[in-house]
Write a protein that binds this DNA or RNA. Structure first.
Length: 104
DNA sequence: AAGTTGACTTTCG
DNA sequence: TCGAAAGCCAACT
């Protein structure tokens, strides 16, 4: 059970959520992309933020670099992505990053 | 202060 | 195209 506190500072978390909120529907960003906007490479820390605070934003718009949705939330994410018209691969199991990737 | 962990990324074979 | 291994950053113990 994860009863312990968040693995990121409130400041870092707020910055990450700020970026995620700006991603338009039908587009996505990789964890690394979000980190890069913050001037960092802490992709995993971004993942931690989503784990604890993701519920406050459209977390399904943040995917891994290869287009696969968040580990452990793939079916839920794919469902929402599809509903938004996000371009998916032929297999339909990951996002077509080439066209769906969004950069601020 | 050193070791562990994680909704990750990149490189190699 | 796929899986394993190393790399990186921030936070916790």
């Amino acid at each position: 059970m994860r009863a312990d506190g968040p693995r990121v500072s409130d400041e870092f978390a707020r910055a990450v959520l700020d970026v995620v909120r700006v991603i338009p529907p039908g587009r996505v960003m990789s964890y690394g992309d979000v980190a890069a906007v913050l001037g960092s490479r802490a992709a995993r820390a971004v993942g931690s933020v989503m784990a604890w605070y993701g519920g406050e934003v459209s977390w399904w718009r943040v995917v891994r670099a290869d287009g696969r949705p968040a580990q452990g939330h793939e079916s839920e994410a794919l469902r929402r992505l599809g509903a938004e018209g996000t371009p998916l691969t032929a297999a339909g199991d990951r996002v077509a990053m080439r066209s769906a990737r969004w950069r601020p």
